[in-house]
Simulated scan of single mutants.
Amino acid sequence: MTTTDISRALNDLLFTPGGDLAAAVERHFAPDYRQRTNGVWSDREGFVQHMTALRSLVRDGRVEIHDELRDGPRYADRHTVTLTRNDGSISVTEVYLFAEMAPDGRFRRVEETTLLISGHADDRNLGSVK
C-alpha cells in the first residue's frame, strides 16, 4: 500500500462525489485508528460518524498543504480546509496535525488542533461534528 497523506485522505473522504466512505476509510486509516481533535478523542467508528456528518453538510471543498514533514512513522502538517456547505456558505479552517503512521502507510493516530479562519462561528465545531 502507498503511504497516504492528509490531502489524499480528505479528498477521498469528503471531496470525491459518490465516493464510497467505507472504502476511503479503509484506504487511509488503520483498523486501530484514533483521533484527537481540539482535545476530544474518538476511535475509528467515531471518525466514520464524523465523516458521515460532514458529508451531509458539505457539497465541495479543497485542501491546501502549507507545511508537511515525515520522519519514519511520524507525520506532521499544517493545512487549510476550505468547505462549501450545501447552503452555499464557505468556511476556512487551518489545521495543525501530528500523526503516527501504521507500517502499511495508513494513519494510525492523528492529533490535531483547528483554527477557524473565516466562516460562521458555528463552523468552529466542524472538526468534531457527529
Rank of each mutant, 00 (worst) to 15 (best):
M1H: 09
T3R: 14
D5A: 07
A9T: 09
A9S: 15
L10C: 07
N11L: 08
D12Q: 03
D12W: 01
L14E: 08
F15E: 02
P17L: 11
G18L: 11
L21G: 00
V25N: 06
F29V: 01
P31H: 11
D32Q: 05
Y33V: 02
Q35P: 02
G39K: 04
V40R: 07
W41V: 14
S42A: 11
E45C: 03
F47W: 12
F47Y: 10
T52D: 06
T52G: 11
A53G: 06
R55Y: 06
R55S: 07
S56V: 00
S56K: 04
G61M: 08
I65N: 04
R70L: 09
D71G: 02
G72I: 06
Y75A: 00
A76L: 05
R78G: 02
H79R: 13
V81F: 02
T82V: 14
N86C: 00
S91L: 13
E94G: 03
E94S: 08
V95I: 15
Y96G: 11
L97V: 10
A99M: 03
E100V: 11
M101P: 00
A102Y: 01
D104R: 10
D104S: 13
R108I: 01
T113C: 08
T114Y: 12
S118D: 14
G119V: 00
D122T: 14
R124N: 14
L126M: 15
V129E: 05
